[in-house]
Design a protein around this nucleic acid. Structure first.
Lengths: 216, 216
DNA sequence: AGCTTTTTCCCTTAAACTAGGGATAAGGCT
DNA sequence: AGCCTTATCCCTAGTTTAAGGGAAAAAGCT
């Protein structure tokens, strides 16, 4: 019997998955919730530790990518099968590096999900061929000692923005950055605004987590 | 029609593979030799560039790993499916990083080989589940850092503080953390104050840079 | 000559964070 | 019983970030 936990915010999909899992002889659902925060707050009392958690990383609130680290730090043995609607290779890479054991791209077939669960159970790892290609490519890029400049530039940041980004990630305040780069405070603010738009975030933390998770 | 090249020193296996390939409607063998040096010397005259090369990396002479780099520098578009008797994850890792597009562990079934060829053809990448696990693990070792829980506890944070720290580093605001942990905003603020004192910092960024390591 | 991108600057408001003060209650240790 | 740790809560004041508005010079491209 394989114990499954489910974290998925799409109610319909969750119900479908719950239903499918309950119909399988060798699978058993031990919890099901819509957000990682929920799981963090209930895990103490929950008692039963699942063998595998199906985790949607397109959740509101805490990024699913961080959720992976959190889950595997609590339960190193738990397998994490990531479900994502995002096709970005970088996301898959970060998920796997954070400790995921598999990656399913939405929409997927339930039979495909079960196949992956089977393989996870036996200690293997499966990714869909396209995901795999992106992952290997990303690994190659990083392995070949790409520096931070290029990494930031992947997101289309300009030279100046990269400078600001580096200082920001290093922990400098706007004021400090303005002194270092010899521009005004508002200019720094301006660059930050533009950077955030480009990488589609709206806070420093989100920016950091998005842009500098892995340092090669 | 998918054009295949074969480099394999085990004569018996090569003959078996040649035979199998010739029987497939959609595959066509354009060359077959026992060593990479052979291919280097004949490729000029050969004329026909294959779509995919099946390459044994347990060859005498030039290491198959180097062969991968050599081949892909000559023909960047050619897919390379590595065949290996060695189960070392490091070998698979190096092969993939050098530019291989797939990895088959000996002994393998010819149907499995064909399945992989199909996927390579469409731009995907497949690895056997066990190989994949080893590969991801190797990647993690190379890029990743130790897990968060231990890291936080090294600084003498209490259980509750570790929870707050994780959420904070994950990008949650005090307000969000207070909702998740079901305590008041001021309590979160309180924990943060204590955390900062313990690790001797006075800002979130400094905290992150202190506890999340490894940027060499 | 007109358009886009990059860089610079300003004002303003709201939200989030930092840090000082003080307080209560449960549990452990001496 | 007294002390320490952990965890909870409140108030307040100052700092830092985030995001909206608008503006202008320089470089490059068509």
């Amino acid at each position: 019997m394989y114990l499954i936990g489910l974290i998925e915010d799409d109610l319909q999909l969750r119900k479908t998955m719950e239903n499918y899992i309950s119909l399988q002889q060798d699978l058993s659902l031990v919890f099901s919730c819509n957000r990682i925060e929920k799981w963090i707050s209930i895990r103490q009392d929950a008692g039963i530790v699942p063998d595998c958690i199906l985790l949607d990383i397109g959740l509101p609130g805490i990024s699913g990518l961080d959720a992976i680290s959190i889950i595997s730090s609590y339960y190193p043995g738990v397998k994490i099968l990531v479900i994502s609607g995002i096709e970005d290779p970088l996301v898959a890479w970060q998920a796997m590096m954070n400790g995921a054991n598999g990656f399913l791209l939405k929409p997927f077939r339930l039979a495909e999900m079960q196949k992956q669960l089977e393989i996870l159970k036996s200690g293997g790892t499966v990714l869909e061929p396209e995901t795999m290609t992106g992952l290997i490519q990303t690994a190659r890029n990083r392995f070949n000692n790409q520096d931070s400049l290029e990494r930031f530039q992947e997101f289309g940041l300009t030279q100046r923005e990269v400078q600001v980004a580096e200082l920001l990630v290093a922990g400098s305040s706007y004021k400090e950055i303005s002194t270092i780069l010899n521009v005004s405070y508002t200019t720094v603010n301006e660059h930050v605004k533009n950077m955030y738009k480009k990488v589609k975030v709206n806070s420093k933390m989100a920016f950091i987590n998005r842009v500098s998770i892995m340092k090669s």
